[in-house]
Nucleic acid binder design. Sequence first.
DNA 1: CGTTAACTTTGCAGATGTTAACTTTCCTTA
DNA 2: TAAGGAAAGTTAACATCTGCAAAGTTAACG
Lengths: 228, 228
Amino acid sequence: MNSSESSDEGGRPYHHGDLRNALVDAAATLAEEGGPDAVTIRAAARAVGVTPTATYRHFANQADLLHAAKHEAMDRLAGTILDLLASEKPAPHPAEAAVQRLAAAGRGYIRFALAQPGLFRTAFLRPHSGDAHPSTEISAILAEAPPYAFLTTVLDDLRAAGWLAPELRPDAETAAWAAVHGLAVLLVDGPYGDCPDTERDRLINATLGMVVRGLSGGPASDAPLNAE
Amino acid sequence: MNSSESSDEGGRPYHHGDLRNALVDAAATLAEEGGPDAVTIRAAARAVGVTPTATYRHFANQADLLHAAKHEAMDRLAGTILDLLASEKPAPHPAEAAVQRLAAAGRGYIRFALAQPGLFRTAFLRPHSGDAHPSTEISAILAEAPPYAFLTTVLDDLRAAGWLAPELRPDAETAAWAAVHGLAVLLVDGPYGDCPDTERDRLINATLGMVVRGLSGGPASDAPLNAE
DNA sequence: CGTTAACTTTGCAGATGTTAACTTTCCTTA
DNA sequence: TAAGGAAAGTTAACATCTGCAAAGTTAACG
């Protein structure tokens, strides 16, 4: 008689009710602890307390589950950045404020990478060849990587404030993103793996400084950069 | 009577003679095609035409083999950069020449990443916790990542030529490296995965431009970068 | 001729993804 | 309100991969 009880009282109901989300959460937790490789059908099912095959009611296969975990990870990265941006009090001068926000976004990005290396790696897993829609639209990049949106906004502000040189605007997102992402990767996985906190902060500042300086027009705008 | 033949004539000799190197090569090839995950004891042994257990005469375990593959990958990356640097004819002006070499190194770095994504990922595998000697010495970084050496040299030249602002010198390696590495990662694994060649070149130029500009002292050297 | 290094055979123990067929529950419909 | 179909689980099983250890075999070398 108690078999259909969906409230408390012993055995969980036959129907989970929200299994898909539960699996995504479990997958995220697995990624958090063991990186992308830890995201397996069986482990996720085990974590939720469900049979492996039940997973196939909600995901086509393991790649599909991993894909969901990737999106979840990316969302959390975006959330961390947003939180940090929201907690900043803008500087009075517009240009200063924009620069400050750019730096804050970068710091949030790196902070997330350091705090959640497993999720960070998962968020930037190479897209499984097969779900590739060959659209080169910016919207595609944006959908794949929400942080891009903040960058665009901040850089527009920076441009409006007269800091960012007009001719540098087009690919500024990429350049700034590359620097921040690269530093994050080097700190998390790379040779800077175990690096004292104080030195790490210095490196972050140096890199952000280079970005800010490199995006402003300056005496070096006509650098002799020969394409190959 | 022919069983001990080490020359041609049919069956390979019982003793391989250079199994360790052969396995490293095989591991590199595996990494080339399938990334780090493809580097397994059995696959490497299979590729060489040897029993899996034979591997244990030369490597302690799978992690050890993978470690060797990682070093091999890093060496090839360094080789690619060196080759490209060697083929550049230096510009007359010292500063120009230094900037040119910095850009060339960056291009070589990214070129390798795009041409050999599997090896590139393998080269920057996070160091397996356990072989971590907590030395923060620069020499450690250098040993782990030969490209660092070129960077140091080039940046010294840049400094000597008066381009690189003195106060920016200390962490210039990291900042420049971060930008180039980040772009490489974004292009190989990240959202820029399938990106038309022409756009890709533009992004590379934009990023390298930012680096060069960002390392020179300029009007923006006193950017309002508040530490957190 | 014997010691020893290099390699093979055999085999275990543990993962994984995925399919097929069955069962329980819910929800709609007559 | 009872029936019946569809949805969401479960059990069982297959095929395949992995690392690794123990013990035997081959050949090289002093």
